[in-house]
Computed example of a mutant assay.
Amino acid sequence: MSAGAANGRVVIVYESMFGSTRRIAEAIAEGMRGGPDVTVLPVKDAPETFPDADAIVVGAPTHVHGLSRPSTRAEAGRWGDDPDRALTLEPDAEGIGMGEWLDSCGTLPGLFAAFDTRADMTELFSGSAAAALDKRLRAAGSRRFADRASFLVDKDSALEAGELERARAWGGTLAQAVGSRAGAR
């Protein structure tokens, strides 16, 4: 068994429109290095069950105060087509979203953590995809093993300075939490 497997197995599933949420997911995985085995998957490639995972970390961009919907993903596609916005749409960004994927899932790992990317303003005004994910995963029977996290983007959907470093640090915190639970098995 690898050292990572002894420290648990984590799957990070993310949805990303313009790359910020993907970059955060990758930074979280970097922060978990040396801890659990980590797999990072875009939502379009995520399976419906995770028989070998101890925990799942899910993340999505905040759209209209919560998770994306087909209409908000189509709007993101229009933003990507607008040359004045200078945005590059992620491959398959207009495909399945986190909400639809969760609707199709079977049994999820017993532990989860949720994150989002959202506008750099108070959550009261921006909303939070992580809050919606937290609620849905708890309703599905998973237990939160770490407080949810929001990573901030500017008005052009670019990550604010320091957010990748915060994501790596949060990943380190997640690794410790999963490792302590895996060690207790």
Rank of each mutant, 00 (worst) to 15 (best):
T62G: 09
P91R: 09
A129R: 02
L137N: 01
P47H: 11
A27T: 01
L87F: 05
A184G: 04
A140M: 11
A25H: 04
D147N: 15
A139W: 04
L102T: 00
D52Y: 14
A131S: 12
D92A: 15
S142R: 04
A177Q: 06
S71P: 00
A93M: 08
V40Q: 13
R73N: 09
T122E: 13
M17S: 12
A25I: 04
A169E: 12
R118A: 05
D45G: 07
I28K: 00
A25G: 09
M98E: 07
A25C: 09
K44M: 10
G172S: 11
A149F: 04
A76R: 04
A119R: 10
G110Y: 04
R143Q: 15
F50C: 12
G97V: 06
C105E: 06
G141M: 15
G77F: 02
G80Q: 10
E15H: 15
A114D: 00
L89V: 08
A146P: 00
E100D: 10
A146T: 04
L102P: 01
T39P: 00
R9K: 12
D156N: 08
S104Q: 14
P83Y: 07
W101R: 01
E30F: 12
G66F: 03
R73A: 05
A74K: 14
L137D: 00
G141I: 08
A177K: 15
R138P: 05
E15W: 05
D82L: 00
W101M: 01
F145D: 02
S20D: 09
F112L: 09
D54K: 06
G106R: 05
G171N: 14
C105W: 03
S71F: 07
A167F: 15
P42V: 05
I56P: 06
L152N: 12
Q176F: 03
L159C: 14
S180H: 06
T107W: 03
E123D: 13
V58L: 15
T173M: 08
V11N: 00
P109N: 12
T122S: 08
P83N: 14
L108P: 14
Y14P: 02
E75G: 11
A93Q: 10
G35R: 00
D37L: 06
A130Q: 07
A55W: 06
P61A: 10
V40W: 13
G31C: 05
G77N: 06
G8V: 03
L124C: 06
R118Y: 13
A5N: 09
S126V: 12
L164Y: 02
S126E: 13
D82S: 09
D54V: 04
A76I: 03
A158G: 10
A158Q: 11
A146W: 03
L67K: 01
L102W: 02
L133T: 11
G19W: 02
S20L: 05
A3T: 14
